[in-house]
Every structure is written in C-alpha cells, then in structure tokens.
C-alpha cells in the first residue's frame, strides 16, 4: 500500500510540482495550502510523513509543527521542513519544535526530496 505524504505548501504551483513528482514515485500525496486544511488531512488520513513549508497564510509552518508534536497521535510522525527560509534562526526554531529534517527548497531537487522521504517511511 502506498505511503501517505501530506504536502503543506501555500504556493499552488510549487505544491503541484511536488505532488506530481512524489505521485510518480509511488506515494499517495495530499496537498494542503494552509494549516486549517492540513490539520483536517492530518486527522483524517494520518500521513506517514509531512513535508512542511514555513511561510503560510494565517498560522505558519512553525505553528503547525508545534500542533503536530503536541498531539500524542502524531508526535512521532516524521516532519520534513521544506522552505526557502534558511537562516540559522529558522533552522534552529524548526528543530527545537521537533522537525526531523530541514531542507532548503532551492538547494534540493525533487528527486532528493523524494529520496529523503523514503528514508523516513520505508
């Protein structure tokens, strides 16, 4: 059965590219453009891994990460922060809140992202 990936990304174009690539690689992918939608998907689908952007409308990615980690049901769900915010303070904050990995979008191809996800969900 295909592993479920939740992609939280407010840019529909970028989100679409990620969904296309991960779907081709055999994942069952759901795209959420904001935290409200992402929270609903999280509860409904219990994804195997979350790929999380930080800059989101309303509640940001940090807020969603905190929410995930505070919920016992998802406290161990792998979360890969995937953002173009890349200053030390951003990385430190994400790790403190419980991110498993921090990937800077512009520094990775989608193959590399897919390969990273594979290390968490195999």
């Amino acid at each position: 059965m295909a592993k479920k990936i939740l992609v939280v990304e407010d840019d529909n174009f970028l989100g679409g590219l990620v969904v296309t690539k991960l779907s081709k690689d055999g994942y069952s992918v759901t795209h959420a453009p904001d935290v409200k939608t992402a929270s609903e998907v999280l509860e409904k689908e219990s994804p195997d891994c979350v790929l999380l952007d930080l800059v989101l409308p309303g509640t940001d990615g940090y807020g969603f990460l905190k929410k995930i980690r505070e919920n016992l049901k998802f406290s161990k769900t792998p979360v890969i922060v995937f953002s173009n915010l890349a200053e030390e303070k951003d990385i430190e904050k994400a790790k403190e809140l419980g991110a498993n990995e921090f990937m800077i979008k512009s520094n990775f191809t989608l193959d590399e992202v897919s390969a990273k996800i594979a290390t968490f969900v195999k």
């Binding site: 970028l14 173009n84 512009s106």
Partner: peptide
C-alpha cells in the same frame, strides 16, 4: 534582503525542479 532572497529562491526552486524533471525524462 531576507525577503528578497526568499522570493528569489522560490522562483529559482520552481525552475530547478522543472528543469530536473525534464532532464530526468519525468
């Protein structure tokens, strides 16, 4: 500068991913 870099990176990411998908014959 932080904001500009973020926005530049977003556009460059999209280009990078698309070109790589072509190169990988996806």
């Amino acid at each position: 500068i932080s904001i500009s870099a973020h926005e530049l990176r977003t556009s460059l990411s999209a280009l990078k991913w698309i070109l790589k998908m072509f190169l990988d014959k996806d």
